[in-house]
């Protein structure tokens, strides 16, 4: 138990610290790297909770795909972040005021919510099957409708990306395998007798 607590605090502290560094960092590449560190530690917390599926998905999807994509974008685009932050102080009073009001409203609303600590644990945790299997059991049976709808949304995203970016150039030279295979040495190779010192 002590070791679990110890790891929980280590992971949490690093998560919060690296999340702060994401915002505070001057170099955007460093910010993205801190974001990755933050994701790794959040995955650690999920592991402690016994949610190994979420932990692995977080690493595979967020670190493996999203954060690396961010890194590429940040490195490729020459965005001047210091100029973007120029008006920060001027907008701070009004932004801070709105944020404060929103915060108070949230406290007022959520303050009335009595959290019931005697909630039953979900089936995935009480039984001895792993939560990956538990998810698999319901995603493809009980929630097949939502699963397929999400699939359709992803299909739309793919079609959209292709429609908006593909560019068929008529002038582009393409490989024609049939022409390559049917080439004849007699037609494509020519012996030329080159005289020394003259060239062709």
């Amino acid at each position: 138990m002590l070791i679990t607590n110890l790891f929980f605090y280590i992971f949490s502290i690093i998560t919060i610290a690296s999340a702060c560094m994401v915002i505070a960092g001057k170099n955007p590449v460093h910010s993205v790297l801190f974001l990755i560190l933050c994701f790794f530690n959040a995955a650690g917390i999920f592991l402690i909770l016994g949610a190994e599926f979420l932990a692995l998905i977080l690493i595979i999807v967020y670190v493996g795909a999203v954060a690396v994509l961010f890194l590429f974008v940040v490195m490729m685009l020459d965005v001047d972040f210091t100029r973007l932050r120029a008006g920060f102080l001027a907008y701070l009073p009004i932004g801070g005021l709105i944020g404060f009001i929103m915060f108070i409203e949230l406290v007022l609303v959520l303050g009335t919510w009595n959290l019931d600590l005697n909630l039953p644990l979900s089936n995935g945790l009480t039984s001895d099957i792993s939560n990956t299997r538990a998810l698999g059991n319901i995603i493809y049976t009980e929630y097949i409708y939502f699963f397929q709808l999400s699939g359709l949304i992803l299909l739309v995203a793919m079609i959209g990306a292709i429609v908006l970016t593909i560019n068929h150039k008529q002038t582009a030279k393409r490989q024609n395998i049939f022409n390559q295979v049917t080439r004849d040495p007699k037609e494509s190779v020519k012996n030329v007798n080159v005289k020394p010192g003259q060239g062709i």
Binding site: S150, I153, L164
Partner: peptide, 12 residues
Amino acid sequence: LGLELQSLPLYV
């Protein structure tokens, strides 16, 4: 999900 599936093609 329906709302997203409806709007995403419209953006494109």
